[in-house]
């Protein structure tokens, strides 16, 4: 199948597919980070994670509208404001959901899954009612438009590069948050021994709420970044949820580095195969491989031994 292509063409094909893969990687990582925190640290499956992400995207969309209508002079910087707003909104909603719903279900993880699915349906329909069923897109500020030519054949869009850089930055922040911050340490303490953590004066309920909120907040930021490379519809979130779960589980659930590595593996595999097979076959093949590997190695690729 390689015979029809020249060597330089092949290189650029791989480079372009590699870039597409990197973009997919960014999306996976952005979505998976929040999910990994919530699932890995709290054992909660949040089926509405995609909808939290979409909420972030809609907030970004609204912010862009606001800036273009009222503050056109500052339009080039609206994105950073939007990201902050997206975080605040989704964090707040997340914390509220934890308080109203999740905390009653910690002992019943399977039920959490069903309840959050219900939440996702409600959110989807809300988006549809408020924003309509059509997809909406934001106007990119000038500095994100256009593309950058590396060689004659290889061109990469600037917004794509921006999203990748953003992904790295967010990943780094999350890493710091979980490893170094007080909340991160408290969360890990609660995960390891809830009773003990409570006994040494950690307010475990508050930690739960913040952890869940932060996980959702990261999803919001992810949604915000998402608007830079794609449009947003009420059901866009559901599209990626299964992939993202597989990324998290594949990565070994409880460690962020594993999540990133898994996201990288899966996205690269998929986008490389996509060129040679049809999109759907590539996806089937990727997911199938992941599922089979998970069957052989259920603890995921990268895990620590922990006491059952």
């Amino acid at each position: 199948m390689f015979a029809e292509y020249s060597m330089t063409e092949l290189t650029s094909i791989f480079a372009m597919q590699g870039f597409a893969g990197l973009l997919l990687f960014s999306v996976f990582v952005l979505m998976a980070l929040g999910l990994a925190i919530i699932f890995g640290q709290m054992g909660v499956i949040n089926m509405a994670h995609g909808e939290f992400m979409i909420l972030g995207a809609y907030v970004t969309y609204l912010t862009s509208l606001f800036f273009s209508n009222y503050l056109p002079s500052l339009f080039s910087g609206y994105f950073f404001v939007a990201m902050l707003l997206a975080f605040i909104t989704t964090f707040t909603l997340g914390a509220f959901v934890e308080w109203a719903m999740i905390r009653h279900l910690y002992k019943r993880p399977l039920d959490t899954l069903l309840a959050t699915w219900g939440l996702s349906l409600i959110l989807q329909q809300t988006y549809r009612t408020v924003f309509g069923a059509r997809e909406v897109g934001v106007t990119l500020p000038d500095w994100l438009m256009g593309s950058y030519a590396i060689t004659e054949l290889i061109e990469v869009p600037i917004n794509g590069i921006f999203v990748m850089v953003l992904t790295l930055f967010i990943t780094f922040c999350v890493y710091l948050l979980m490893q170094k911050s007080k909340l991160g340490k408290q969360t890990r303490a609660v995960v390891q021994n809830r009773a003990m953590a409570g006994a040494v004066g950690i307010n475990t309920e508050k930690v739960d709420r913040y952890t869940f909120g932060v996980g959702c907040g990261i999803a919001g930021v992810a949604g915000s970044a998402f608007t830079m490379i794609g449009s947003t519809g009420p059901t866009s979130g559901q599209l990626y949820i299964v992939d993202t779960f597989l990324v998290v589980v594949f990565g070994g659930a409880s460690n962020l580095l594993g999540t990133v590595a898994a996201a990288f593996t899966i996205s690269q595999a998929q986008s490389t195969m996509e060129f040679f097979l049809s999109g759907s076959s590539a996806k089937v093949l990727t997911l199938l491989t992941v599922v089979i590997i998970l069957m052989l190695r259920p603890q995921g690729l990268f895990t620590l031994k922990i006491r059952r």
Partner: peptide
């Protein structure tokens, strides 16, 4: 000994895979 939420997620993934396969 895969069970609980892992089983749920993997069966869900299988449903997704089969759908994509049938449609594709």
């Amino acid at each position: 000994r895969v069970g609980g939420v892992y089983f749920a997620i993997i069966t869900q993934a299988i449903a997704a895979i089969l759908t994509i396969l049938i449609i594709g």
